[in-house]
Each structure stands twice: as C-alpha cells, then as structure tokens.
C-alpha cells in the first residue's frame, strides 16, 4: 500500500470534484507537516495542484479586508506557493506578491 500514491489520489480527486477551496485548511495541514505534498521534494502533484491553488490564493488575499487572517490561516500554503511560483518561473504579472514582513499570530497546533 502506497502512502505517496494515496496522497496523489486524494488531491487529484479534490481538484476534479471542484472542492479545493473547501479543503484549503487540509492542504495547509499537509504543508505544515511536509515541505511539499509528498515530502521533501517537488513532485508532479505539487505542480498539478499549484496551477489551481495559485489563482485561488490570489483571489483570497486580494478579496479580504483582513490579510493577516488569511496569511495566518494559510501560512504553509502561502510558503509553498511562494516557492512553487519561483520554481515554476511564473510570470511576474501572474504571481501572488507575498508580504514577508507581515507579523502573524502564533500558530496553535
């Protein structure tokens, strides 16, 4: 039984059913405990997911009045997006601008 394949199957199913936004807290947990979706290295599922997560996070950040709340809730997703947009050489206009100076509330685990 493959945990890696199971994680890939999970995130593909979530994307295909259009439920990624509802599962952002779960994605944040996944990325809290892992640098990438399946551990320490970028894999194809990171790239597949990134294509859908980037516009979602851009919309979330740009539409909120409380940016620090979004950053606080999804700090691990934003860290991953920040890395992935660099790794995937996303055009400047398409990127999400991450505010690295924002002071976030302490994370409660």
């Amino acid at each position: 039984m493959s945990e890696v394949e199971a994680q890939i199957a999970q995130w593909r199913a979530i994307v295909k059913t259009g439920q990624l936004k509802e599962n952002l807290p779960e994605l944040n947990l996944q990325l809290r405990d892992n640098t990438f979706i399946n551990g320490k290295n970028v894999s194809s599922i990171d790239k597949e997911l990134f294509v859908v997560v980037l516009p979602l996070m851009k919309e979330l950040v740009s539409s909120t009045k409380d940016v620090s709340d979004v950053y606080g809730k999804y700090r691990h997703v934003l860290r991953w997006v920040d890395y992935m947009q660099e790794n995937e050489k996303v055009a400047e206009a398409e990127r999400i601008v991450i505010n690295h100076d924002l002071v976030l509330p302490r994370e409660i685990i």
């Binding site: 493959s2 945990e3 199957a9 599962n23």
Partner: peptide, 25 residues
C-alpha cells in the same frame, strides 16, 4: 489515519488506498 504517517480525508483516496488500487485515475 495510520499513526502520524498518513491522514486521508477523501473517500475516493481512502478506497483506493485500502484496496491498493490506484489504476484508472
């Protein structure tokens, strides 16, 4: 869940994992 190693919340992925069948995706 499988200890601290694995947590799945998608019923589709859980079925695939327990059956050990990742074909046809």
């Amino acid at each position: 869940t499988k200890g601290d190693n694995l947590r799945l919340v998608s019923a589709d992925a859980i079925l695939r994992y327990i059956m050990n069948d990742f074909s046809g995706q």
